[in-house]
């Protein structure tokens, strides 16, 4: 059965030298994961206990049938439109925050770094902007919303401002990463030939990364729509606020209708993103 060759020891040069570190990191990953599972009380089997299943069923039964009365649908449509408006306005403000900060912080546009090492002042400025972005996005939009609900009162404005700040931080970070990970050859050459930073951005970096930047922005817009639903629960307007009301009134059917509308919205954003990618590819 076994050929004599297979029983002999494999020559050392034919052995994959990387396998030991692969095994090590696999084990290390598992060891690090274990305490996280303990800490989060990860017990999936409780999902299938008879008691849990019964209460789950009771909760879900409330959702059926979805409410489709004309007047209610009109209200949902209006609130849905408001949700999209909150997300869009929030994104527009977030872009106003993110784009200048990205342009300042991305090292792909550093002139002083061209011959090798960035100068001290540009380096400090870039780090400062990076920290500003960290602060902006590390405060969850829910907290920002709670703050702004107190400042500007209940309503969509609080939601718009909350999304603008958190998403400004996220967009700024990821835009920077996209710009820095893309092929920098064209941009570098423009800078080396004496072009300005913004010129190099518009003629080198942006055409290189436009598709990726757009698809990420549309994805974030989709996230903003979902996020504005959560913000509604703390009184920042939109479909979320309606959903909160219906939940409190135990109107499962209304919640179900709104969830379906939500799925349609997210699906729509998905198609818009795919279409934009195709156009820009």
């Amino acid at each position: 059965m076994n050929s004599p060759a297979s029983t002999t020891v494999i020559a050392p040069q034919l052995r994959d030298p990387a396998w030991l570190s692969r095994v090590f990191w696999l084990c290390a990953g598992l060891v690090l994961l274990a305490p996280a599972l303990v800490l989060t009380e990860f017990k999936p089997w409780t999902l299938f206990e008879a008691e849990t299943i019964k209460s789950t069923k009771r909760f879900l039964a409330d959702f059926f049938p979805p409410k489709v009365e004309g007047e209610f649908l009109l209200l949902v449509a209006k609130e849905c439109w408001r949700t999209v408006a909150i997300a869009t306005a929030g994104m527009a403000l977030a872009l106003l925050i993110a784009i200048p900060l990205t342009l300042i912080s991305t090292s792909a546009l550093s002139i002083s770094a061209l011959p090798g090492r960035m100068h001290a002042i540009p380096f400090v400025v870039r780090q400062a902007v990076r920290w500003l972005l960290i602060v902006l996005r590390s405060v969850p939009e829910l907290i920002w919303a709670l703050v702004f609900v107190r400042v500007v009162g209940l309503g969509p404005t609080a939601g718009v401002l909350a999304i603008a700040l958190t998403y400004g931080g996220m967009l700024g970070k990821v835009y920077g990463e996209i710009l820095e990970s893309d092929e920098s050859h064209a941009t570098n050459t423009l800078l080396r030939n004496g072009a300005g930073r913004l010129q190099a951005f518009f003629y080198g970096l942006l055409p290189q990364s436009a598709a990726e930047l757009t698809s990420y922005t549309v994805y974030r817009w989709e996230c903003a729509i979902r996020s504005s639903a959560v913000l509604g629960f703390v009184g920042a307007g939109g479909l979320g606020q309606q959903m909160d009301n219906s939940m409190k009134m135990f109107q499962g059917g209304e919640v179900a209708t709104m969830l379906i509308v939500f799925m349609l919205l997210v699906g729509l954003a998905d198609y818009a993103s795919a279409w934009l990618r195709r156009v820009l590819a």
Partner: peptide, 14 residues
Amino acid sequence: LFLAPQTPPLPPRQ
């Protein structure tokens, strides 16, 4: 100065 690198520095979608 005009430096033309060996690989043409042209963004593909431009």
